[in-house]
Design a protein around this nucleic acid. Structure first.
Length: 120
RNA sequence: UGGGCUGGCCGGGCGACCGCGGCGCACCUCCGGGUGCGACGAGGAAGGUCCGGGCUCCACAGGGCAGGGUGGUGGGUAACACCCACCCGGGGUGACCCGCGGGACAGUGCCACAGAAAACAGACCGCCUCCCGGCUCCGGCCGGGCGGCAAGGGUGAAACGGUGGUGCAAGAGACCACCAGCGACCCGGGCGACCGGGUCGGCUCGGUAAACCCCACCCGGAGCAAGGUCAAGAAGUCGUGGGUCCGCCCGCGAUGCGUGCACGUUCGAGGGCUGCCCGCCCGAGUGCACGGGUAGACCGCUGGAGGGCGUCGGCAACGGCGCUCGUAGAUGGAUGGUCGCCCCCCGACGCCCCGCGAGGGGCCCGGGGACAGAACCCGGCCUACAGGCCAGCCCGUCCG
RNA sequence: GGUGGGUUGGCCGAGAGGCGAGGCAACGGACUGCAAAUCCGUCUACACGGGUUCAAAUCCCGUACCCACCU
């Protein structure tokens, strides 16, 4: 599981990351990555959005838990103070743990490449 | 041995590693917290939110009307729309199952279409006596009229008791027998719903209250986002200047919610969470519309009408007593990931065993194991659900 | 978590126990040199499952889905 310090909790950060952050998607999920620049010394944080379209309560919880677990391995590779939002799509309900992991890694590599390549 | 009915129960098991949640203990701390160890950590429905209660606030929870609910009887319970037993009606060969199951002589309404007629009787076709006219093969036939009748026809969901007889011009509960149904009374049984039997009566009196309604009983309202404690007085809006990737950003000033309308400070607005009246209480600002904003910590927060065993009472639901167990409390919301062995189901290449055979069993391999995730807590109801276990009973078949 | 409301053709929407309006759209035809507009006609529905009633979109119970609200 993801340690508490790396969990994204407040609604404003979700909104900012989803609107202003870099975005990359796959069949099962979409990731938003936003780096606030200097002035913040928060650790990188990750949040999840799993809407009702994904499935019932059991399905949504399972997807969220798997994503939290998977996100653990990627935290060290995130830049400092980064805010990562992972939004699950309906296809995530039927995806295996390995497939979710592959999609997450792939999408994350793409946003990271774009963010570090343009160090505005 | 084949099929079926009912009740109760389980809802994969053992283990390893990495994580998550609150808790306990120890240590460290820059007092924000951190580290280590330990036991614990979703359900029978946690679900739908359809009922009932606890709890909290609204006055101490008041009165009347309105409104809502329940609806065979007797019990159980904190309470219920739930449960148990029984009664009545219906279904089944049977075990057993199903029923919102009070009242239609308190009153009102509705019953489309069809049909002569739809609720109180009435008469379209029709049947019969008599009279008049016409025809006649003298048997009658046709048309009209004064009356009598309701058996037969057809319509409909439903047509004013059924069958047989007496009777009559033809008929009719007009009368008779039996049957069905209604009412009154009596006897017996049962706490009761009701059941069994008998006598008499008038001969019968449609359905619908999940239509209004009447009767009996029950219900004050809101809901843990209830409610309480403590911090913070910010988020915002308007004006103005500047910047900009045209999304916004920065500085200064004003306000501390803003604007508009209405009513009002004891001659009292308004409020006290569905409406009206009364009563009581609070009361200086309030109501409405538009625009803006909806944020932090802690308490409530888990020990209860609780589970198990024994015993006694009771047909049972359930209750009394004794012993015993006590182990979820998150708040972007804790159970996930990986793996081993076993169990169950499915598939199939191959191999082995049993059998004359149809086929059965085993090993290896692959896939699968339902419905579904606590959010204040209980008691029910309803709905979803792979597979399986236990007990009792019914019907059929075979053998003895 | 809690509290209310809704579901009628492809779309919007009336209906309050016996016949389900109307409009837009679609299709066919008429008109036109071709279209538009107009006119005529056609098609398609009571969310699902039970119950009450002679009869249910309507009344009652359950299920599914959708929407709004809470400070």
């Amino acid at each position: 599981m993801l340690p508490p310090a790396h969990r994204l909790v407040d609604a404003d950060s979700f909104r900012v990351a989803a609107r202003a952050g870099e975005r990359a998607g796959s069949r099962t999920l979409v990731v938003h990555l936003w780096t606030p620049g200097e002035g913040s010394d928060d650790p990188p944080r990750v949040g999840f959005v799993v809407s009702k379209a994904v499935g019932d309560a059991v399905t949504r919880n399972r997807v969220k838990r798997r994503l939290r677990h998977l996100a653990r391995e990627h935290v060290p590779s995130l830049p400092g103070s980064a805010v990562l939002v992972v939004r699950a799509l309906p296809a995530a309900a039927g995806a295996s743990y390995d497939a979710l992991g592959a999609d997450l890694g792939h999408a994350l590599r793409r946003v990271l490449a774009r963010t570090t390549a343009v160090p505005a």
